[in-house]
């Protein structure tokens, strides 16, 4: 009993530093942002206005478009990316594979690239007379060039392609690290029992990697709900507001337009609420013990 108690105290010591830092540098500003969300005004002249910012939010067509767009990205992009990342990590975990280091590095590198270079290159590749269109035209996949940056539908596709390109290798790293903790003997046993690679994947790899799948699922969801870099730098939210995200709208309200930090804070808490909902769903699906 005593030992248990002392262990519990040691446990608190382990988490102490981390908790202090997060409280100071995240929760303290977060509480201030929350208070701010009940105020309104330009720049430094703020008045308390109660719930008006939140009411305004539900009548703001641009905010609603941004929320819609963000959901579209979330629904399509997160599953595609996570499956791809898992797929590559399993391929790369094959002990007999040659040039492993090269393939691993190549697939990871997109997440290292500077945002400036990445956005310029994507805009260039996907311009109307760009290489991607030329390639598709030559292969007769399409009969006329796709207006990637000007068409509401294709602009969203472009954003999804861009995020997937950039972040698949990043998520792959977590799986690769996780796969090292899976005992190879399990696979050997499965092979003897006649399980094919697909069965091995679904009956061994996926269950073993569950904690990591949950981790990448939640962090990618958070990343997508806060998506900013790609629409800001590749499409500028356009055409019109068709690729605008919630985070980008927050940025516009704070820095692009006459600053209204109170309203921007209110929009931010929409992201918090949405993220909490999705995280709870994923923890439930992930079968976390109570």
């Amino acid at each position: 009993m005593n030992l248990r108690k002392s262990k519990s105290i040691i446990g608190w010591v382990f988490i102490l530093i981390a908790t202090i830092f997060i409280t100071l540098f995240y929760f303290y500003p977060m509480i201030q942002a929350f208070i701010l969300s009940f105020k309104s005004g330009m720049g430094a002249n703020l008045q308390f206005i109660g719930l008006d910012n939140y009411i305004r939010l539900f009548n703001d067509p641009v905010a609603l478009i941004a929320i819609r767009n963000t959901f579209i990205y979330l629904i399509f992009q997160v599953p595609i990316m996570i499956l791809l990342a898992m797929f590559f990590s399993v391929l790369l975990n094959n002990p007999k594979l040659k040039f492993k280091g090269f393939f691993r590095t190549a697939i990871f590198l997109p997440s290292v690239i500077s945002l400036v270079a990445y956005s310029v290159i994507f805009k260039y590749l996907f311009s109307t007379d760009g290489l991607v269109n030329q390639f598709l035209l030559n292969l007769s996949f399409i009969s006329e060039p796709i207006e990637w940056l000007m068409d509401p539908f294709w602009a969203k596709v472009l954003i999804i392609i861009a995020i997937t390109w950039r972040w698949t290798g990043y998520n792959m790293i977590f799986y690769l690290a996780g796969l090292q903790n899976v005992d190879n003997s399990v696979y050997e046993a499965a092979k003897i029992d006649g399980a094919n690679p697909i069965q091995q994947f679904f009956y061994i790899t996926v269950p073993m990697l569950k904690p990591i799948i949950l981790f990448t699922g939640i962090t990618s969801t958070i990343g997508t709900l806060q998506l900013f870099d790609e629409p800001m730098n590749i499409t500028k939210g356009g055409p019109g507001n068709e690729t605008l995200t919630i985070s980008q709208y927050i940025y516009n309200l704070s820095f692009e337009y006459t600053p209204d930090f109170g309203y921007a804070a209110a929009v931010s808490f929409i992201i918090v609420v949405l993220t909490v909902i999705f995280a709870v769903i994923q923890f439930r699906l992930g079968g976390e013990r109570k």
């Binding site: 641009v62 055409p239 019109g240 068709e242 692009e256 337009y257």
Partner: peptide
């Protein structure tokens, strides 16, 4: 800036 963003959005429509 806010006005031109709105107009650019409406230009699309």
């Amino acid at each position: 800036y806010a006005s031109t963003d709105i107009l650019i959005g409406e230009l699309q429509n």
